[in-house]
């Protein structure tokens, strides 16, 4: 992974500087994997999920993660006109960092030992590597400073206008929802909460999720907040972005709950309630992704 942030196109850095930047990039990825992955690495339910999760569901999660990372890498490198090839390379490196980091931390905490069966070992690491890999990618971009990366770009100001397609916008929301859902879904609390709730509670949660999601992006003036162009009624953005975003957050919730086997043999109303409970953090994750990415 090279640091492209400071380099203009076509400029090749000296060899020693390039390898230093590569190591700095790895370090940032590792830091990101730790920041975003530690809450999950220290969650008990995920350790046990590592050996009882059905293998085809785990495989599916790992496969889905790959194109997700590539698109995320492409998006994050947008200021530096990264190509798809570079995005694939960055995503692969981020995944590798996440796997190494997860293995190291699980080993350090004494959760995996060398004498456990290989399937259990691999299962525990693989499931942790998914959120950690998203963290590794984010770490590279969001923690990356621009000062110490060689010559600063001159053309940055004029070319920093980027058009995000509608599909990409929804995709970013899906990544944000997936990340936060993965963090909380494995805990038993999610289904416990849905059992404690009455349908009225669920309706209130649903309304609040949508409201918060909309307010996060449009009303509260965060850095990166979205605004409507003049003359567009407010409900336009609500229908075009917030509602699809919420439906995506719910769909991701269902997918994550299914992956962790929380929906098996459960009645449809209970399934929906659990999805709404998990959709609450999912919606916030989706909204946050629109601000950050």
């Amino acid at each position: 992974m090279t640091q492209q942030s400071g380099l203009s196109q076509g400029q090749v850095p000296p060899r020693s500087q390039a390898s230093r930047q590569f190591l700095v990039g790895l370090g940032r990825g590792g830091a990101g994997a730790l920041i975003f992955g530690l809450p999950m690495l220290m969650t008990m339910e995920l350790w046990s999920l590592g050996f009882y999760i059905e293998r085809y569901r785990l495989l599916l999660l790992l496969l889905i993660n790959m194109p997700l990372l590539v698109v995320l890498a492409r998006r994050i490198g947008f200021e530096q006109t990264s190509t798809w090839r570079e995005a694939i390379r960055d995503a692969t490196v981020a995944y590798a960092i996440a796997i190494a980091m997860s293995a190291a931390v699980l080993f350090l905490l004494g959760i995996i030992k060398l004498d456990v069966p290989a399937t259990e070992l691999l299962g525990k690491i693989a499931i942790q590597a998914v959120p950690a890999s998203i963290g590794a990618l984010l770490g590279r971009s969001q923690l990356g400073g621009h000062q110490d990366d060689g010559p600063t770009d001159e053309e940055g100001e004029t070319e920093s206008e980027v058009i995000t397609s509608y599909g990409r916008e929804l995709f970013m929301m899906a990544i944000g929802a997936l990340f936060l859902s993965l963090n909380v879904a494995p805990t038993e609390e999610i289904i416990l909460i849905s059992y404690k709730m009455t349908p009225w509670h669920a309706l209130a949660t649903l309304a609040l999720s949508i409201l918060i999601m909309h307010a996060f992006v449009y009303a509260v003036a965060f850095r990166g907040a979205h605004q409507l162009s003049r003359g567009t009624p407010r409900w336009h953005a609500f229908v075009r972005f917030t509602l699809p975003g919420y439906v995506i957050a719910l769909a991701i919730s269902l997918y994550v709950l299914w992956t962790f086997g929380r929906l098996d043999d459960t009645a449809s109303t209970q399934v929906l309630m659990a999805a709404i409970v998990l959709g609450f953090p999912g919606a916030i994750g989706a909204a946050a992704a629109r601000l950050i990415l």
Partner: peptide, 29 residues
Amino acid sequence: MTITSKSRHTESSKPDWLEWATGIVSALL
């Protein structure tokens, strides 16, 4: 679509019909 410039995002004022279709389907869901 959205236009991002200096971490300001402005929603396009002339959205594609697809955006409306997605929005309406989501609202129904």
